[in-house]
């Protein structure tokens, strides 16, 4: 049991990395990866929301949507839960833990429309994971997202100071650097199964 959970966790972090092999959350990956501290902050916020959203959506799917045969409503239901949840977290953090709000709060509004969060919740249902497996998968997905953001912020600072052709400066060079980082993650594929 615990070994399968470990496999799910490592798979989600390394092999099926949300950003580099599933292409979810590309906008924050390219937008917020310019500096190490903002990359880490965004990663932590996404991980937190991803786990919490899974904690909410899983019981709602199996407790309400499945018995009432409304499973086709999952996209609408999940995105509403995520939007609600992000708002709630923002309010709670602002009131109770202002120090955490200052470091994570600024990224929260961006997370509602982050496809990695909605993707993770839907993927957990589609892969027919149990509740614990879903939470572990969401945690792994969030950690993998953080890892790729942090690695990429380092790569990016080098790319920015490199001498590259004028046509490629900016986003094209960033995308090609992402391609090379993605190649290195391909080495993990099939490692844990």
């Amino acid at each position: 049991m615990s070994s399968t959970l470990l496999v799910i966790l490592l798979n989600a972090i390394l092999c099926d990395n949300y950003v580099l092999s599933k292409f979810m959350g590309i906008c924050p990956f390219l937008g917020v990866s310019k500096k190490l501290d903002s990359a880490a902050g965004m990663g932590a916020a996404v991980t937190f929301v991803m786990v919490c959203a899974t904690l909410c959506t899983y019981p709602i799917y199996y407790g309400i949507l499945v018995p009432m045969e409304l499973t086709y409503m999952k996209t609408i239901a999940f995105i509403l839960i995520i939007a609600l949840f992000v708002q709630l977290i923002e309010m709670i953090l602002k009131k109770k833990i202002p120090s955490l709000y200052n470091s994570l709060g600024v990224y929260l509004p961006l997370i509602t429309t982050n496809c990695a969060v909605l993707g993770a919740t839907i993927l957990n249902i589609d892969s027919e994971f149990t509740f614990i497996e879903s939470v572990v998968n969401a945690l792994g997905g969030g950690l993998g997202f953080t890892l790729s953001l942090i690695i990429f912020s380092g790569v990016r600072s080098r790319v920015n100071s490199a001498d590259i052709p004028e046509t490629f400066k900016g986003i094209p060079a960033t995308l090609i650097a992402a391609s090379i980082v993605s190649v290195s993650f391909m080495g993990f594929s099939g490692m844990f199964s």
Partner: peptide
């Protein structure tokens, strides 16, 4: 057709 190719 692998992810890396997409970025490239």
């Amino acid at each position: 057709i692998m992810p890396a190719g997409g970025f490239f």
